[in-house]
Amino acid sequence: MSETTGAESTAAGDGDTTDGSATTADTMRARAGENRVKLWLLLRANRLLVAGVLTLVVFVAFLAVAAAFSPALAEKVGSSDPIETLFASMITAIVTGATLVVTIGQLVLTQENGPLGDQQERMDDTLAVRDSVADLTGSPAPTDPDAFLEAILQAASDRALDLREAVHDSGDSDDGPDRAALEADIDELVAGVVENADGVRGQLDGAEFGSFDVVFAALDFNYGRKIGRSERVVDNHGDTLTDEERDLIGELKESLSLFGPAREHVKTLYFQWALIDLSRLILYAAVPALVVAGAMLAVVDGGTFPGRTLGVDHLSLVVGGAFAVTLLPFSLFISYVLRVLTLAKRTLAIGPLVLRD
């Protein structure tokens, strides 16, 4: 998987070539360069569905191996006791895994605990950011995560349009090629901001926090690339820009830079939400997994399920199904951790930096 960043942009200019033309796509899917199915499996797919598919794959693989290697499982049980060995080990693994999950849950909760002074500092920092967003948008900052991000995107889009209008209004046909080049670069910058912001706002509309939709939509706004382009415009056209235009570019950059920490905050909250859900689901799955493993130890032997179906021993079917069920807590762990790690890898850095080829 290619390395990516929170901004998905190059350090020199957020994915732009040296002449200023954009080469990096705005959406995360286009920037990733990954197979669409692989990306869907890692991020978009329902985690319970992924866990279910992994469990089914384990079951099928167990049957395939059991059928491929002779003698049959029933014959092996007659000479030794692989069932007892297998499920005794699974009971130990389940208990150990459940204990580990409780530890993970405690680590998440410790971030929410602390003395009164620390809690007051957290509140002050949160309110300070909300005040900055309120100043940016001209209205109180929304409380819903999706609306909060939408408000910043709308402000960035509005400021981009104001910048384009000011540049064209102050320009003149006799100003020469430098002014024309400035207007072309501003048009490209503004078009990228407005189109990208409108697309992400459409994805955020109606998205519910906790379902990953909010975080996934936020990944599609390539704010770092746009910060880099705004800096390049000032560097390339410093002598042509008026003071008003410089101020408007600065205001646009301010709105873009606010999206970065806002998205990181929402992402952090999602991480905590997902880890709590994961801990709860694993504990739920651990109980039936222990029951199945205990039942296999207590009542199943070589003569419990005689006969064959389609050339497969009934005992192999039962043992394979029970083995897959006892692995369900681990399948849940894999499905959630895959998403969390993929998301963390794609947002390692904040700002216009890149960690990929």
Rank of each mutant, 00 (worst) to 15 (best):
A11V: 08
D125L: 15
K226V: 06
H314W: 04
D205Q: 09
D178T: 14
A141D: 11
G117D: 14
V193A: 06
I227W: 09
R225Y: 01
R356I: 09
I91D: 08
S79V: 14
F148E: 02
P261G: 07
A293P: 07
F216L: 00
G202A: 15
S211Y: 06
D158N: 10
V214I: 14
P71L: 12
T347N: 10
T27S: 15
A32G: 09
S157P: 01
G224M: 04
A218Q: 11
F259H: 02
V95I: 15
H168L: 12
E244R: 14
R229M: 00
F323L: 14
E264R: 13
A197T: 09
D124K: 08
L327D: 04
L189F: 07
P140R: 14
A98E: 11
L219Y: 08
L328S: 13
R263H: 11
L297C: 01
V190C: 08
A12G: 15
S80Q: 13
L315V: 07
A217I: 03
L317G: 02
L275W: 11
K345Y: 09
L100V: 14
N46E: 12
I334S: 03
G171C: 04
I350G: 00
Y284F: 15
V214K: 02
L204Q: 09
G210T: 11
A93D: 05
V319Q: 05
L39R: 15
S89N: 04
A45H: 02
G117E: 15
K267E: 14
L189E: 11
D26F: 05
P306E: 06
A68C: 05
V354Y: 03
Y336S: 09
K253A: 07
L278T: 00
D172P: 00
G210R: 08
D125Y: 12
A11H: 01
N196W: 01
M1E: 12
D14S: 01
D169E: 15
F216A: 03
V287F: 14
L355G: 04
L63W: 12
A30P: 05
R179F: 04
D169C: 05
D198S: 14
E245S: 04
T137L: 02
F148N: 04
A141P: 07
L54N: 11
T99S: 12
G321W: 03
N196P: 00
T342A: 12
L248Q: 09
